[in-house]
Design a protein around this nucleic acid. Structure first.
Ligand SMILES: NC(=O)c1ccc[n+]([C@@H]2O[C@H](COP(=O)([O-])OP(=O)(O)OC[C@H]3O[C@@H](n4cnc5c(N)ncnc54)[C@H](O)[C@@H]3O)[C@@H](O)[C@H]2O)c1
Ligand SMILES: NC(=O)c1ccc[n+]([C@@H]2O[C@H](COP(=O)([O-])OP(=O)(O)OC[C@H]3O[C@@H](n4cnc5c(N)ncnc54)[C@H](O)[C@@H]3O)[C@@H](O)[C@H]2O)c1
Lengths: 256, 256
DNA sequence: AGGCGCTTGTGAAGACGTGCACAAATCGCG
DNA sequence: CGCGATTTGTGCACGTCTTCACAAGCGCCT
């Protein structure tokens, strides 16, 4: 566990507002702002207006200001936000001042891609362990890390102070892996398997399901198609029934 | 309401409820229901109650009923929903009755994993083309598909009727690829590159950014840690400031 | 045939998120 | 030193989403 935590600002003895409970929607956007800010910093900008930053992050500027105001951030009226300071603040709030150790369970197709991804390191994370249940995968070295057997999870968790577990196993194994992660004290899980996980209260699970994303896009495709197919009907397009007519290209063939 | 005329039933002469404009939140959950329903169908269930289905999908049962009511679905009071019928209806609404063709651009680390993933096929999609800009990758065969050069995109789009483009290139190339996709008529894009894309109106973009997911988890870790670290202070833990100038919390007061 | 238990569908209320519009604050300049 | 240009921070109104609670409907059992 962590012993000494410095509640103040990371670098200077600034007065960092110390963890207000932010709206979830805000929390979800902070990483976007952070990425945009890093880009701006790399481009040499020292300050940025809410207008400029919101454009870079692809959001409404009022929303951005409100988000930042939630974490007590100080911009300067008439000037904007200090890029470096804002990066520090957001990184502090997101808990990125310490590099968190990630354990990746399931080093298959997807797991390999994740293990080889260098984008985590630059965003505050360190892949500290690769685990798999398949004996033939154990021992394999990827990116300087050796794949260990999933049964070693308790040892690994102690050695590396794992903060986050990533599940990239088949769905059938995901719940079991989640249970194992929880039992060794992991309280944050990112799940790539297409299934719901049940975990005790206090454990956070986020899921990424590509098929769901595609299906949502599919819905909008379907919708766009059905709208353009019925231009003349005006507002009634939404309620028009595809009863045989208009079954051209947009329609999913009623036939067998 | 509409008559009992064989609702859904894409196989028959169906008068399907035809695309009401669903709330986005509902659209995002329908794929979850669909997955749960397929599991139930495989397990031999013919009907399911809102309680049962909502548990399987990990949501509140009232929310599920409201979602289903939006798409005009008919359950049977006292009994529940017909599993097969509900699958048909949801698949119709999501536009999954036709298998949509997906073009994957960027066959690198992540792209390989996606190309080799069989989970798309079973959820309504067909990876119809693999494209890359690197000449040394062109010609490589993955899962029966040959990688083609990204400049062939116009030809590919015509041949395969691409409905959805997936971007798995580095961030620096993503906007350019998006422009190319749009120019060949693709109106739905799934973006894995960590950057914002600007696209014309009418084009839908969804993004998946793993680092963002991890950072959100990190925030909650940070928060949990800071709460357990200050057990005695109770509610004031949230507003405790290290510096003493507690001016900015909720209270606006006049300076001094 | 009628009652009873179960489940859906939905009205209403509240929580949450969004965006406008503007006062307050700050800087640069004359 | 004061003024105008600029930009933040936020009150307010509006829209969306969630959740409760319950009447209406359905099938089964007696
Ligand atoms: N590959 C993709 O692009 C992709 C996309 C979306 C979702 N997914 C999902 O991600 C997960 C992994 O996909 P994949 O293509 O890498 O599958 P995969 O079969 O290639 O890899 C799964 C790995 O998990 C390991 N494993 C199985 N049971 C385990 C256990 N109990 N403990 C530890 N490891 C275990 C296997 O040995 C294997 O190495 C699946 O749930 C899949 O649906 C994958
Ligand atoms: N690998 C992961 O696990 C992972 C995780 C999260 C996000 N990402 C993101 O996904 C993207 C791809 O990651 P990766 O690890 O596969 O990178 P990669 O470098 O391994 O692969 C990128 C591929 O894109 C190709 N490419 C470059 N420019 C192109 C263009 N203009 N048109 C077509 N193809 C082009 C390259 O030739 C290469 O094959 C990156 O933006 C990365 O940040 C990857």
């Amino acid at each position: 566990m962590s012993q000494h935590r410095q509640p103040g600002a990371p670098g200077r003895a600034g007065a960092v507002p110390a963890l207000p409970d932010l709206p979830e929607a805000t929390v979800a956007r902070l990483p976007e702002y952070l990425r945009a800010l890093h880009n701006l910093a790399d481009a040499g900008h020292e300050t940025v207006s809410s207008e400029g930053l919101s454009a870079a992050a692809g959001v409404n500027s009022a929303k951005l200001r409100k988000d930042l105001s939630h974490l007590g951030s100080y911009g300067t009226r008439g000037v904007g936000y200090d890029v470096a300071l804002l990066i520090e603040q957001i990184e502090y709030v997101l808990g990125l001042t310490q590099r968190r150790a990630v354990a990746l369970v399931g080093v298959g197709n997807l797991g390999h891609a994740l293990a080889g991804y260098d984008g985590f390191a630059s965003r505050g994370f360190r892949i500290a362990a690769l685990l798999d249940a398949d004996p033939s995968r154990v021992g394999e070295e990827i990116n300087g890390l050796v794949v260990r057997h999933v049964d070693e999870l308790p040892a690994v968790a102690t050695e590396e102070s794992i903060a986050i577990g990533v599940i990239a196993t088949p769905a059938a194994a995901a719940q079991r892996v989640a249970d194992q992660l929880v039992s060794v004290g992991v309280t944050s899980i990112l799940n790539f398997a297409p299934c719901v996980l049940s975990v005790p209260e206090g454990v956070d699970v986020r899921k990424v399901d590509l098929a769901i994303e595609l299906q949502i896009l599919s819905f909008h495709e379907h919708r766009k198609a059905s709208l353009t197919a019925l231009p003349a009907t005006g507002g009634s397009a939404l309620t028009a029934l595809p009863g045989g007519l208009a079954a051209t290209d947009t329609q999913e063939a009623i036939g067998t």
